[in-house]
Write a protein that binds this DNA or RNA. Structure first.
Lengths: 253, 253
DNA sequence: TGGTTAAATGAATCACGTTCAAATATAGAA
DNA sequence: TTCTATATTTGAACGTGATTCATTTAACCA
């Protein structure tokens, strides 16, 4: 039993090692340029060994994507459990996404590529399924906030299902990632700080939904105060994604 | 001169032929599974001939993406020129996107893949540049509506630049495409008609921005009346993206 | 018609993911 | 400790498919 368990530990450690090197390689050269032979060389195993852990190259990508999604899920769940009003917790989801981009700048690329139909089809169904299960955590965290808002009377459900409300915020976040990471678009559009705009958009959307307490979506002082509070209370163990408001105020000169 | 021009015409015709077959192949098997040899066979040219027109496989994808983006640009410009209030024209952008998805169901996949960094880096800079130039038309069409709204007094600019306002709607549309096309997500989330939700989200966002005239974002009758009017006045030459409201009403039974 | 240039061709090249027969290591029995 | 059976690792060989380029073919003009 000890023996078996030691074997299992070694196996897991090797897998970890491969995934770490893979992540690094993806960051350096991109997934399509990642060569299995080079990955094996860096991890100091033979090419064939990789295939004991992963059925194909795409499965490695999906495993990396899963890790990022799991992290996001954890971020979202922290925010969902935050001791704050439902509106602030929903607004916090946008910030959590920003935090994830800071912590794993390459995660979005990985997830984007994994979800591109072309790659999607090449991965093993089980590995895809595992990734989607991690994703469910994100969806549930957001849904729980919407449900709370309705039951606490902060949000009139109207003709919208909680899923539809979640979907709205989800599309804003997802779209912000896409547009932000598409090379050259922000520069051409003279945009900076897209995630601050995302946070503002959350406020605009929340107001549009009449999600109480209503708030002035133009008030940057309040927005940065919100960032500060959220960060201090929910993510004290992470680097803040935003600069302090004082820095931003002095920005124009 | 006549000779040269005929040559040029033949060259252009061949390129058209290759692109058409490529689009079909991409639809059938996806871009990564598209084989240059098979494309050559279908277009009835030799493999080498393809490389007189496109420097690499990725350039073909970018040319296809450019065509879709150009079409979107045309759709957006139609809406921007629509004789309607600024709010309706902005709301119309969401509908135009929906129309594009109907007309070219495969376009989003192509554009998504082209913009994935991995593929992006492989294409020829000139071809990428050409694609981005087409995209500028979309941005300008939206910007013009925002500008009109401000100058007509429908929208208080506040602390937001017109670019930032455009960005907000852009992220919603882009995110809706992404989430909608990611396999399995909608089913798991029990979502249907994502583009109707997008249209509603446009209204919520417009209300949140206090973009006049304010409107009840829950009023589906008004929304479908809007679809009908927009479609009749701007896109009479296209199949409507939406079903008639009568159909939708009878949907539940 | 013949000479010259431009274009098309597709077999050969090369790169890379994947496989699998052989080599090696491990565990347990004697 | 030594031997045998089993499990694991290895990397050279294979197959697929993008790209190239020497050769062939067509177009043009004198």
């Amino acid at each position: 039993m000890t023996t078996l368990s030691r074997r299992e530990r070694e196996f897991a450690a090797r897998e970890r090692c491969i995934l770490d090197h893979a992540r690094e390689l993806v960051r350096e050269v991109g997934f399509l340029n990642l060569q299995m032979a080079e990955l094996a060389r860096r991890a100091e195993y033979a090419t064939g060994t990789l295939y004991h852990h992963f059925r194909c190259k795409e499965d490695i990508l999906f495993r990396l994507a899963s890790e990022g999604i799991e992290l996001r899920s954890q971020f979202f769940e922290r925010v969902a459990r935050w001791d704050a009003c439902s509106r602030d917790r929903m607004a916090g989801m946008g910030y959590a996404d920003w935090l994830l981009v800071n912590a794993h700048p390459d995660h979005f690329r990985i997830e984007q590529l994994a979800k591109a139909v072309d790659i999607w089809d090449r991965a093993t169904p089980e590995v895809r399924e595992a990734m989607m299960n991690k994703g469910e955590g994100c969806g549930n965290a957001i849904l729980s906030v919407v449900s709370d808002a309705i039951s606490e009377g902060d949000l009139e459900p109207g003709t919208r299902s909680p899923q539809q409300v979640s979907f709205s915020f989800w599309t804003m976040s997802s779209g912000t990632h896409t547009v932000t990471h598409a090379a050259g678009i922000l520069e051409r559009f003279e945009m900076r700080d897209p995630y601050v705009i995302l946070a503002r958009n959350y406020q605009v959307m929340l107001n549009g939904l009449r999600w109480k307490p209503l708030q002035d979506a133009e008030d940057d002082t309040a927005l940065y105060a919100f960032f500060d509070r959220l960060h201090a209370e929910v993510f004290p163990d992470h680097q803040p994604a935003h600069r302090s408001h004082r820095d931003v105020s002095g920005d124009t000169q």
